[in-house]
Simulated assay, not measured.
Amino acid sequence: MLKSEQAVTAAHTSTSRAKQKRMSPFQAIWEYRASYVFIAPFMICFMIFIMIPVIAAFGLSFTYYNSLEPPRFVGWANFRYMLSQDLILIKYAIPNTFKFATIVGPGGYAASFLLAWLISILPGVYRKWFTLALYTPSLAGGVAMSIIWLPLLSGDRIGYLNSFLIKLGLINEPVLWVTSKEHLMTSMIVVTLWSSMGIGFLAMLAGILNVNHELYEAGRLDGIKSRLEEIWYITIPSTKPQMLFGAVMAIVGAFKAGGIGTQLSGMNPTPQYAGHLIISQIDDYGFTRFELGYATALSVFLLILIYAANKLCWRLFGTKEDE
């Protein structure tokens, strides 16, 4: 009886596939019109706010455009200038961006997973308060910058960090944490990591909390003896979708964080370009020099970098069904 039901199901599936192949695209859309009505609001917003701007950006990247005159087609001139003559981009923005993203992206991602796992083993009554405490900095933004970090990292003796270190005898003179070339990048990384527990952190926490506890019991019966083995063999494989989402959000956040150096140092550009990132270069050409064509070309270059990093995440955490 079971075999006959399976045969009927297989025949029905093959018939449906053959029918779909015979239908034209317009017939297929009409047949599934109810489904398209449901996804229409999302598709309209996606086209207006994402797809069309991206296509327009690719088009403007091949033009000279100053927002006053009509765009003038210049071919690959913007990209040739970017790769051969923009010394600030080559010498400062690209190396600083890769250093910043390499530390903040994986570092924030690892911290998100570790803290999410630690919260998951807490009693439920404490879990929500620790989650709120860790998630709040990602919402604070400029408020936390002006209230917490700027007084803390002030370069005089009144700054909280300098005052504390001088009292302990660890330093004799105040350290210019945010206005010196040597320490600005470190300060940027610390502040960004502090505020990196965003939506990716919540996604990983939700994934860990929803892992079937029977898997842990079965693992202990199969010889898993430590928490580390549970994480490696059960937690990580069971939360791959959430970890993929968290990785993508961490990479995008690391690459797009550009104003942090200017906010901390109060200077634009940052001291000796120590905190100058690709986003800073885009802002400089787009909103200061009004060379919007070249600024758009820089944006396309950054988009390609983010896409390559996201493909790496899909390789690490994606599955064949997701590709």
Rank of each mutant, 00 (worst) to 15 (best):
T9P: 00
T13L: 15
T15W: 13
S16R: 12
A18F: 07
K19Y: 04
Q20T: 03
Q20K: 10
W30A: 14
R33D: 00
V37M: 12
I44M: 06
S61D: 09
F62G: 07
Y65D: 05
L68R: 10
E69D: 09
P71V: 03
R72E: 12
F79P: 00
S84D: 11
D86C: 11
I90Y: 09
I94T: 13
K99R: 15
G105E: 00
P106W: 11
G107V: 03
G107P: 10
A110D: 00
A111E: 12
S112T: 07
A116S: 13
S120I: 03
S120C: 06
I121V: 14
S138M: 04
M145W: 10
I147M: 09
I148Y: 13
P151V: 11
L161G: 09
T179S: 08
M185P: 08
T192Q: 11
W194T: 06
G198D: 02
I199T: 05
F201S: 04
L205C: 09
L205H: 04
L205Q: 07
G207F: 08
L215I: 03
Y216C: 07
Y216R: 02
E217P: 07
A218K: 06
K225F: 02
R227A: 08
E230F: 04
W232T: 07
W232H: 10
P241V: 03
L244G: 00
G246A: 15
A250R: 03
A254C: 02
T262C: 02
Q263W: 12
P271T: 07
L277Y: 11
Y285N: 09
F287C: 08
E291G: 06
V300C: 14
L303N: 02
I304Q: 07
L305R: 11
I306N: 03
N310T: 13
K311E: 00
K311H: 03
K311Q: 05
L312D: 01
L316N: 04
F317S: 05
K320G: 07
